[in-house]
Every structure is written in structure tokens, then in C-alpha cells.
């Protein structure tokens, strides 16, 4: 269960955990934007290594980091595999019309480094942050209140609705439903999933009515009380901001010198 909105956050005296969620949120955006603007392979390799070290040292755990690493979407694989062949340049191997170029390889490596550096940075800075605190930080950073309310409710009810869908799937299995892809069974499979989707949505609507009534009953009038974290930024936040700014400046300087 997520922590109560108004509860004082546990303060740890060192490391990423000592930083204010606002600092972590803004730092992640600044860092990712900076990486997106870099292009030199050496600078990007350094950035990827640095953010990897940061993720290992400060992220919420090595096992979670490894799970992040193996995740690459299908179209990213297509993109990376095709780039060596679609960028014209010095041929490396292959026969026309399929010639892999050195420039294409460089481009693929560049994108791979960028994607990973950004992933490590987000993991290190935001991976261990509870969504409830992210919502509070976003509110403190002047995000629209309704958007934050939506975010917090989705955080709260995401797991509930996943369990609802899992219960329905279990009931389907208990009635001997097995998804099948053959021509004769596809229609049955899709109809069954369509009905499941409809049922999940009906239950979501009914739950929303109950939740809405319960919120009104407790005096909700469009605002969440004390939902923004108020503590002032500390010395750790200043130190982190300076370090990050120095790292970003160094990366851009190295890129211009190279």
C-alpha cells in the first residue's frame, strides 16, 4: 500500500535518497536532454559508463537493473539491425545491395549508447522513488493539480484493476478457455477477450462510482489537502545540482574538443 500522502518522507543522510524528489525529477530531465544532444561516440561511452556506475551505486538494486537492461522493444531491434545497411558510407562487409557501412555501425552504436545512458540515469534517479512522492514533487513543481490527482489515483488503482483482470482470466481458465490462434478459434478467442475487456471496464466504472462517493463522503472538493512536499531544498540538493551541471558542461566541452 502506498504511503499516506501527508506522511513525512524518511530522510536518509547520504546518497541519492538524501535528495529532494524535485531535484531528482529535474536532474533526470536535464541529464536525459543533455544525452539526447550529444553525438560523439567517446563522450557517449563515458556518459553510459558514468550513468551505469551511478545506477549500480544509487539505483534500487542490481537485479532490477539487469531486468531493465534486457528490455528492448521490437522496433528498436529492427532499427539497430538495419542501420548498418541503410546508412551509406565506407563498406565493411556484405554484397550489394546489402552492404554494411562503418558509418552505419557507428550510428547504431551511438543510438545504443544514448538509449542505455538515458535508461541508467532514469533508473538511478527515479527508480527508487515511490510514485506517490513523484506526484507530490510534480505538484510542488506546479504541475496541474488535476493531472497529479489522476496520476495518484492511477498509482493507487493500477494494481487493483490488474488483480481484477487476473481474476477474470482465472475464471476463464476455470471454464476451460485457452487462447487459440487457429482460423476457426481466433474469432472465439477474440470474442472472449472482448467480453473480458468489457467486463473489466464495467467493474472499473462501478468501482469508480464507489470511490467517488467515498471521496465526497470524506470531504473531497477538488483539492487534495497537503499533497505537496514543502521542505526546503538542502545542501545535498545544491551539491547534486552542481555536480550534474559540471558533468553536463564537461560532456559538451569534450564533444567540442573532440
Amino acid at each position: 500500500m502506498p504511503a499516506a500522502l501527508g506522511a513525512a518522507p524518511v530522510r536518509v543522510s547520504f546518497g541519492i535518497a538524501a535528495l529532494d524528489p524535485r531535484t531528482r525529477l529535474l536532474g533526470a530531465f536535464a541529464g536525459v536532454l543533455a544525452v539526447a544532444l550529444l553525438s560523439s561516440l567517446w563522450v557517449l561511452a563515458a556518459a553510459a559508463l558514468g550513468t551505469f556506475a551511478l545506477a549500480l551505486a544509487a539505483g534500487p538494486g542490481t537485479a532490477a537493473l539487469m531486468r531493465r537492461l534486457v528490455h528492448l522493444e521490437g522496433f528498436m531491434l529492427v532499427l539497430l539491425a538495419l542501420l548498418p545497411f541503410t546508412v551509406p558510407g565506407t563498406p565493411l562487409f556484405g554484397a550489394p545491395p546489402f552492404v554494411a557501412s562503418a558509418e552505419g555501425f557507428a550510428r547504431a552504436v551511438q543510438i545504443l549508447l544514448k538509449v542505455n545512458a538515458c535508461g541508467f540515469l532514469v533508473f538511478a534517479l527515479l527508480g527508487g522513488l515511490e510514485p506517490v512522492r513523484i506526484g507530490a514533487a510534480a505538484l510542488a513543481l506546479k504541475a496541474p493539480e488535476r493531472l497529479v490527482q489522476l496520476f495518484l489515483l492511477v498509482v493507487r488503482y493500477g494494481g487493483v484493476l490488474r488483480a481484477e483482470a487476473a481474476r477474470l482470466q482465472e475464471a476463464m481458465r476455470a471454464r476451460a478457455f485457452a487462447p487459440r490462434a487457429s482460423l476457426t478459434w481466433s474469432l472465439h478467442t477474440w470474442r472472449t477477450y472482448g467480453h473480458m475487456l468489457g467486463m473489466v471496464l464495467v467493474r472499473a466504472l462501478e468501482r469508480a462510482e464507489r470511490v467517488s462517493e467515498a471521496m465526497r463522503c470524506r470531504g473531497f472538493s477538488g483539492r487534495l489537502p497537503a499533497s505537496a512536499e514543502r521542505p526546503a531544498l538542502g545542501a545535498a540538493d545544491l551539491a547534486f545540482a552542481l555536480l550534474l551541471a559540471a558533468a553536463i558542461l564537461a560532456a559538451f566541452a569534450a564533444e567540442h574538443l573532440a
Binding site: 489515483l153 484493476l161 475487456l197 467517488s212
Partner: peptide, 23 residues
């Protein structure tokens, strides 16, 4: 807001289910 949020949760939950299409 609760209606939109909880319906959205329902959509996200069902989008996690793998639906067979051909192979």
C-alpha cells in the same frame, strides 16, 4: 477524475494481456 483514472487502470491492465493473432 476517479472515473477517468480507474477506467484508465482497466485499459492498462487489459493491455498487458497477450492476445494471439495468427502466429
Amino acid at each position: 477524475i476517479p472515473k477517468v483514472a480507474i477506467l484508465a487502470c482497466g485499459f492498462f491492465a487489459v493491455s498487458l494481456v497477450a492476445i494471439p493473432v495468427g502466429p
